[in-house]
Design a protein around this nucleic acid. Structure first.
Length: 430
RNA sequence: GGAGAGGUGCUGGAGUGGUCGAACAGGGCUGCCUGCUAAGCAGUUGUCCGGGGUAAACCCGGACCGAGGGUUCGAAUCCCUCCCUCUCCGCCA
């Protein structure tokens, strides 16, 4: 949510910055009009209420003295009509205002490249060299089934399209990656491991920006106001929702492994093959809550924390700063980590690291008390994948494949695979 | 799922219709006192919204006693719905 004060004081500036993200200026203009109307009604209503309160007090005083107050009561009662009209007007206005302000995306940071879509993204750095193969590398949707570790047909049978079953070394590989990532982030990077609920309520999703605008991307539980989490960012960022934290505790760093569930209705036709885009996937997430002064420093650190995983695994990648038009709804600035996928002959997103500044903090009422004292302030929230596990599996299979069809596992994983260093074709079911 | 009890400020805990934003105690803060600490004494202490103020300070008003409705001139107090916590029963890992 944007600052109301900012919208009122610099409407044209805000409208211009929103336009760089593709927001129709009519939306903020409608907000301004409704906000002015709301405040006018509020001023009148509060004046009426004030007089009403004084009259009630006078009645109370009369009655305590045992005097008759019937005339006063009648006068006050008849004055309630206008109050009712104003209250009804406000009750109608407020949801309208809320829908608009909850639908406006965050303002982009000045350092973000301007542009309508991903073609305006800026490559920040390229790390590692794509491997040179003496043979034609195979995509993971061939390698996985050939090795007997990924089964797309049976995933579709058990559930439907975009669900997958992992077997044997495939399942082990994800478990090993979870262990590697959580150990790295907790021991080397100072995050606290969290095991959050995988189901959250509506208020939590409004806080991080998924609702009300992106309901169609979520799985909702029938008969409840509960949703499956689309990312651990949602529960982790909301841990301290409606709290005021002492500045001494900041920054807070949380990491969690969770499955993620995305309906993404309407996304069919894109990335249909293999593990790239699934309705259920695993992820290790990084979240930080910081002071406003330190959040951009924290974004660089958090991005480096995610990069460290790719470096340990020896996977080639690049870091991209998303353009204004490509940046996600809640984010002011986002770095995507894109891993090299030989099977696709290109770089594909494996992590997205964002500074949401106070956008989520306003929605979720996340504040801190400055050490110097004074009013509570909104803190800044950051999140990043560290990393998406399914896509890490893809990257390992495709980058580490050998001519004989086996896959050599990166050395960093060996402590987590119980001695397994190479995935070879395997039988299932023992 | 069934039955019962309960949700009040930073904390504990009063308050069953009228000056209650809320007694009292603890904690915090500010003075005084003290060689220092402790104790003692006095004062102070929330959040949000709106108006005024260039802004801060500040001033005025409104709202907030789990959430949302209702009754009433007036609700923390009465009524309804929902949520959460605790105890017992059932069921289950």
């Amino acid at each position: 949510m944007l600052s109301r004060e900012l919208l009122r004081h610099d409407p044209e500036g805000v409208i211009e910055r929103l336009a760089s993200r593709g927001v129709d200026p009519a939306l903020p203009r409608a907000w301004l009009r409704l906000d002015a109307e709301r405040r006018a009604a509020l001023v009148e209503l509060e004046e009426l209420k004030h007089r009403h309160k004084e009259a009630s007090r006078a009645i109370g005083a009369l009655k305590q003295r045992g005097e008759d107050a019937a005339a006063e009561i009648a006068a006050v009662a008849s004055a309630k009509e206008r109050t009712g009209v104003l209250e009804a007007r406000l009750a109608a206005l407020e949801p309208e205002i809320a829908v608009i302000e909850l639908s406006l995306p965050n303002l982009p940071h000045p350092s973000v490249p301007r542009g309508a879509d991903e073609t305006a993204n800026r490559v920040e750095r390229v790390v590692g060299e794509p491997p040179a193969f003496a043979f034609e590398p195979r995509p993971h949707w061939e390698l996985g089934p050939a090795l007997g570790i990924l089964d797309f047909e049976r995933g579709a049978k058990l559930t439907g399209a975009r669900f997958t079953v992992s077997f044997g070394a495939g399942a082990l590989l994800e478990r090993a990656l979870i262990g590697l990532m959580l150990d790295l982030h907790t021991r080397a990077h100072g995050y606290t491991e969290v095991l959050p609920p995988f189901i959250v309520n509506r208020a939590t999703l409004i806080g991080t920006g998924q609702l009300p605008k992106f309901e169609q991307d979520l799985f909702k539980l029938e008969g409840h106001d509960y949703y499956l989490i689309p990312t651990a960012e949602v529960p982790l960022t909301s841990i301290h929702r409606d709290e005021i934290l002492d500045e001494e505790r900041l920054p807070l760093r949380y990491t969690a492994y969770t499955p993620c569930f995305r309906s993404e209705a309407g996304s069919y036709g894109k990335d249909v093959r293999g593990l790239i885009r699934q309705h259920q996937f695993n992820k290790v997430e990084l979240v930080q809550l910081t002071t406003p002064e330190t959040s951009y420093e924290a974004l660089e650190q958090l991005t480096a924390h995610a990069e460290k995983v790719l470096q340990l695994l020896g996977l080639p990648y690049r870091v991209v700063c998303l353009s204004t038009g490509d940046t996600g709804f809640s984010s002011a600035k986002t770095y995507d980590l894109e891993v090299w996928l030989p099977g696709q002959g290109g770089y594909r997103e494996i992590s997205s690291c964002s500074n949401c500044e106070d956008f989520q903090a306003r929605r979720a009422n996340l504040r801190y008390r400055p050490a110097a004292g004074g009013r509570a302030r909104f803190l800044h929230t950051l999140n990043g994948s560290g990393l998406a596990l399914g896509r890490t599996v893809i990257a390992i299979l495709e980058n580490c494949q050998q001519e004989d069809g086996t896959v050599l596992l990166p050395a960093a994983l060996h402590p987590y695979t119980g001695g397994l260093t190479r995935i070879a074709p395997q039988r299932r079911g023992g």
